[in-house]
Write a protein that binds this DNA or RNA. Sequence first.
DNA 1: CCACTCACTAATGTCAACAATTTCGTCGTC
DNA 2: GACGACGAAATTGTTGACATTAGTGAGTGG
Lengths: 216, 216
Amino acid sequence: MPEDSKLAVTEALRAAILAGEYVPNQRLVEVDLCERFGTSRFILRTALQDLAAQGLVEFQHNRGARVREVSLAEAIEITEVRILLEGMLAARAAERVTKSDIAMLRGLVREMRAAMAKSELLTYSDLNARLHAAIRDIAAHETASRLLRQLRDQTVRHQFSLALVPGRPAVSLPQHEAIVAAITGREPAEAQRAMHTHLQSVIEAFRALTVATMPR
Amino acid sequence: MPEDSKLAVTEALRAAILAGEYVPNQRLVEVDLCERFGTSRFILRTALQDLAAQGLVEFQHNRGARVREVSLAEAIEITEVRILLEGMLAARAAERVTKSDIAMLRGLVREMRAAMAKSELLTYSDLNARLHAAIRDIAAHETASRLLRQLRDQTVRHQFSLALVPGRPAVSLPQHEAIVAAITGREPAEAQRAMHTHLQSVIEAFRALTVATMPR
DNA sequence: CCACTCACTAATGTCAACAATTTCGTCGTC
DNA sequence: GACGACGAAATTGTTGACATTAGTGAGTGG
């Protein structure tokens, strides 16, 4: 498989980092990764460089690659940008949404309600990601989608710790319902506003985490 | 200088592409570039990969690297994102602007007026870039600035052809004046609105270019 | 005269070995 | 016992060579 092995390795490594198998600041020793993914140092190095360009890992000269640590402050900055991009995408989605899209969005919301009722936090978190992805796809804005993926990858760790906050779904579910209602109702301005409200509450949750975890 | 030669080569190559020394779809033959920049294929390859990650060049398997062609449609998408990011930065700049910032901004506007009066299009275009950079610096939003740099690099060619449109400065100068007035007046909402108006007019200029150049 | 094949060239993708640097453990000294 | 110099192991950065593949042009057959 020397065909597109580089891409495969890149994606596998990205998945491993996003899954938390390598934690921030952990050194990524090339030979170990080569063994794990069954590839050569050359291929692995290109993969590392790609991920470095996307801000997932960082290089230190003569000290190799580490998983990049994204501070909470930076996560807030990133979410501020997400507010803008996802707000626009929500508005566009409201303009372009089709009948089948509407059915899919409502299905997702239904599943989210069920997951919350059963307190399945991980399921809820996954559905959350799928809902945002669905809105991206409907909006069909290549540039914004590409940037959002980068930003989301960088904050996935914080996103995760947020998902485990006990009362979190109870706060975010009605917000998601409002977003979907506006999109399915084809109200762009309202969809954008609802998305702003939602992500603004994510920022506030981050801020709460900051004060909650700092005093330790 | 094997120290940070990779970064130096990357920047040199980036500058060359942005300067138009290599045109879209032109093949970037590694050996030639090595000779030009006095470096090895290995270093040059990492530089190419970096620029590929930033969307300036693209790789085709077994066919090496080419300067990536950014269509006018994509340039419009990119500008749509710039509207959001630069709008936020303008608002933030209005909140954080200092006395010395104000003097600098007004100085830039003064120079732009002079350049327009003398019809020095290239000077005006350069001042335009410096004004936007100044606003970025004042806003101090690392994430947004990083993304904007990528986006701007990708559209520099279109930006350039726009700068050469005869009546263009006459349209954009008052818009720039309005932006600076709002920032120096510490009016965030107004600064954001003025920036939106400005970049929206850039999009419309792009659209005009589309119909102007297509029928040939 | 055209189309097709085939070798030849040029350029890229990959590798394995080498050099340089950091890291870590050991030893000696104070 | 602690601290610092020294040296070996581990790890990364780089090089040059090799394999593979697209591009090209001559030559041949129809």
